[in-house]
């Protein structure tokens, strides 16, 4: 007599529709995220982890700002520039933000042209993104030197709570480092695009894996993330 014994509780491999289909995809064999390459998955997860780093920095900043006993300097005065005799609050930072957001635009275009296998335009767009990024870092250096010349130090400043300088230099510095690393990566990838590495699937130096245009998109993910973080830093430091 035939007797049937269930020894396994896993799903069948046909994919149902709707939400159940999403769940089935996620828990299916081989890949949880279909059509997402290893590199891209890795970048997403790295960015998640990095979000926690920036999150902790910003929470630390908020705690410091809320719990200091001495008054916090007024951002619209501290971050003002005198142009043609007028004090314009937040002007530099507005330009910086504009530059960085624009660079996200050029980056998105680079990704698009990359998938169209338009080598030249992709490389140009990436270079443009890198230039905008470098401009941002340059303006940040200018802002830092201005503040330093006015007597702001990590451990003290002329206007109020010492934590102002500490958190400002630490967090914008950490973000600026991210931008700088991004610029370097943009240049490296742009060079590869230009040389046609991704058309010939030339192997990367570090990973010895075949290159393809997705690398442009992965670089782009990082770049957009750095921009997004800036929006938060901007809001918390300059608008609060």
């Amino acid at each position: 007599m035939a007797q049937t014994i269930e020894t396994h509780t896993g799903e069948t491999l046909q994919r149902p529709l709707g939400l159940r289909g999403v769940a089935a995809d996620l828990s299916s064999d081989q890949r949880a995220f279909k059509n997402i390459s290893w590199g891209k998955a890795m970048m997403w997860i790295f960015l998640l982890s990095d979000t926690f780093i920036f999150g902790c920095f910003l929470v630390a900043y908020m705690t410091a700002r809320m719990s200091t006993t001495i008054a916090w300097p007024n951002p619209s005065e501290v971050f003002a520039l005198t142009i043609g005799g007028h004090e314009i609050p937040l002007i530099l930072i507005a330009i910086m933000t504009f530059v960085l957001i624009s660079s996200s635009g050029t980056m998105a275009m680079a990704v698009n042209f990359g998938y169209r296998r338009d080598r030249r335009t992709t490389a140009i767009m990436m270079l443009l993104t890198a230039v905008l990024g470098a401009t941002f870092v340059g303006m940040q250096a200018f802002e830092w030197s201005k503040l330093i010349s006015e007597g702001v130090r990590p451990w003290e400043n002329p206007w109020g709570a010492a934590q102002f300088g500490s958190t400002f230099f630490m967090i914008t510095g950490f973000h600026g480092t991210h931008v700088t690393i991004g610029v370097i990566f943009l240049l490296i990838v742009a060079r590869k695009v230009w040389r046609g590495d991704f058309d010939t699937e030339r192997r990367g130096f570090f990973t010895s894996r075949k290159g393809n245009y997705e690398v442009v998109e992965i670089t782009g993910l990082y770049w957009h993330f750095v921009d997004l973080v800036w929006v938060f830093i901007f809001a918390f430091f300059y608008l609060w």
Binding site: G10, S28, D29, Q30, S37, M42
Partner: peptide
């Protein structure tokens, strides 16, 4: 650790054998 950790996570999520579902 982050370099290794990203590897472990992506390997589990995206590089399993045929038939190796999450619930197996």
């Amino acid at each position: 650790f982050t370099m290794g950790g990203l590897n472990y996570v992506v390997t589990v999520l995206q590089a399993r054998a045929r038939g190796m579902t999450l619930m197996r």
